[in-house]
Amino acid sequence: MEEIHRLLRRQIERSGVNLKATEDGRALLDTLDKTYKHFEDERKILEESAKRMLERISSSNENLLTIISTLDGFNYHVSHDLKTSMIHTVSLSKMIQKYQEAENPEKVKEILNKLVNNSENGLNLVEKFLRISQFNTQLVEQDLTTINIPDLINSIAKELDFKSPYEINFAQTEFTELNAKEVGIQSLFHNLLTNAIKYRESKRTLKIDIRLVQNGRDKLIYFKDNGIGIDLESNRDKMFKPFVRIENGLNKEGTGVGLFLVKKIVGEHNGTIKVNSVLDEGTEFIITF
């Protein structure tokens, strides 16, 4: 644009007309300059917004890719579990047929008990999956409200069964309020707290240190426990995936859904989550909103 402007001015000068000599000419040149400056400004704004749009598109593309791969894992798991349950039903039914024909009522009774058990497990499974998908819809639809983080954490902790003494310290509170989706943040801290309880080191008192740090516009939540820790080398990639259980916690009850939900909730708020952990020392989650 500037180039065209310069060329045009040079052409006018070459044509022999001395616009600078007259008042009207100078005004014309001035208007010309202003018009081009205006064009140039417009162009810059357009360029800037095109760049921003491109950034937004590629970041939502990335988000979509993550969602697809998560869904892929989720679907794989759901379909596998449901299929397993159905295969159990088929297997046990076939056995009933066989022992019915062989007139072995004792055996039929034994298999029927297993069949009832298996069907109940199948039903629980379906209910679990429905709960997760229901939560997703709820989360997406909810509006933002102002949430007092320490109050929320304390009220969740009061409802939980810690089984033995514990400490929750707010070591640093540069902010206390967060504008977020309540159902999500409630579930987020519920999951982090239950994990801290579940994977505590039984030899020491459970200590949870929470720091709320304001960094420019970012709100950082440091959530640190002194539990059994996670071997990040082998688990970093899979710990936020659905239905994955961490090895040193396999003897604890769980569904492998907690941290998957936590990450989902953070993502729903355009936040990020990081984790530091040392085996036998504890785990720290750093959430940025």
Partner: peptide, 11 residues
């Protein structure tokens, strides 16, 4: 890991 499957296959 599925005891139902083991029960069936064994049978």
């Amino acid at each position: 890991d599925s005891d139902v499957n083991n029960y069936y296959t064994e049978d």
